[in-house]
Deep mutational scan, measured.
Amino acid sequence: MEVRTIKVFTTVDNINLHTQVVDMSMTYGQQFGPTYLDGADVTKIKPHNSHEGKTFYVLPNDDTLRVEAFEYYHTTDPSFLGRYMSALNHTKKWKYPQVNGLTSIKWADNNCYLATALLTLQQIELKFNPPALQDAYYRARAGEAANFCALILAYCNKTVGELGDVRETMSYLFQHANLDSCKRVLNVVCKTCGQQQTTLKGVEAVMYMGTLSYEQFKKGVQIPCTCGKQATKYLVQQESPFVMMSAPPAQYELKHGTFTCASEYTGNYQCGHYKHITSKETLYCIDGALLTKSSEYKGPITDVFYKENSYTTTIK
């Protein structure tokens, strides 16, 4: 009895394709271990004539594949690729409408935090270190965002349907971005203890939790000093293409032309909904596939993004 075979390709990165001759009487799992086709788990399936010449994702289970996976995804987590594939199996079914010149995501599976993050990423200057993220990001900007969303979920250790947080998501993504040249110098002034300067680099240099107003941050924000008295913390120097200011959701007025974009969060910790506000020729609110415009805006804002380049204080 002759062994019926077909020729397929296996890959971990969709760049390096490895030619395989597979036995049609055995499952993919018996031949390769966990195997995925377009995100779908085909591990328990036997090869079919229609699979001839198709590319299958496999887990990096030998040295060659491990090197290829690390170079593309910059992670050695053995569960990463499987999590990416199972997320992709959902995100490829989502709709990605162009809204006001940006790629958004039609609401499904509690994905409003991903839509808000995706919209924000198209408006701030950011370059990702893992080629996987950078490639998928370019495709997302062009309207094909399924891979990018699935990668975000995998890097953030999230599953489809789980509630997510924009600030946490951005923080994970910033860790995989090139923020080497970003720098922030802060000064804390206390009447009792004097003053202390701190220099922050990388992710810490672009994120701040405690106030939404970048102007206020430049002037000074009140913080408790270690001595128990009130101290003032203010920005001395900022070198970065953008800054992200966050605070627990509270009524906040966004003035046209003073910011790049913002995240609105309605609801409580267990259950809520994100919308995205962007400042173009007027203010726009993007909620999944829905767009509304207004000249002014007041609502429960939790993150505001500002364009920056270089700032030095005039406070002496």
Rank of each mutant, 00 (worst) to 15 (best):
H273Q: 00
L200T: 11
K183S: 09
I105R: 05
M85F: 08
H176A: 05
G53Q: 12
D23H: 10
T292G: 09
S246N: 00
L163P: 14
T76L: 15
P131T: 04
A205Y: 00
A247V: 04
Y96W: 04
Y306E: 02
T266Q: 12
M244E: 01
T5M: 13
L121W: 04
S240T: 05
K233H: 10
K7I: 10
A250T: 15
E253K: 08
P224T: 15
K275P: 00
V304C: 04
L17E: 09
K293L: 09
V203N: 06
E308A: 07
T5P: 11
E168A: 11
A69R: 05
C193G: 02
D135V: 08
L153K: 05
K46G: 10
N129E: 11
G202Q: 01
A231R: 02
T292A: 10
S240D: 01
H276D: 00
Q123Y: 05
Q238Y: 01
P248N: 08
T103D: 03
S181M: 15
D13E: 06
Q230M: 14
L37W: 14
A154C: 06
S25Y: 09
H256A: 13
H176G: 01
G220V: 01
T91C: 09
P34I: 08
E281R: 04
F32D: 06
C271F: 13
G272V: 01
N111R: 01
H256C: 15
A87T: 06
A108Y: 04
D135E: 13
V221L: 13
H276G: 01
Y234L: 07
D38G: 09
P60W: 09
K255I: 13
D135W: 08
E264D: 06
G164H: 01
T226M: 10
M26Q: 13
Q196I: 09
V203S: 10
T211S: 10
G194Q: 02
Y306M: 00
V166Q: 04
V203C: 10
N147G: 10
A87C: 09
K298S: 14
T116M: 06
K229C: 10
H74V: 04
S246F: 03
R141E: 07
T211D: 07
L37N: 12
A145D: 01
I301L: 07
K183E: 07
F128C: 04
Q123I: 05
L254F: 00
D109Y: 03
N147C: 11
D180Q: 12
F148Q: 01
Y172W: 10
A117I: 06
I286F: 10
K218W: 06
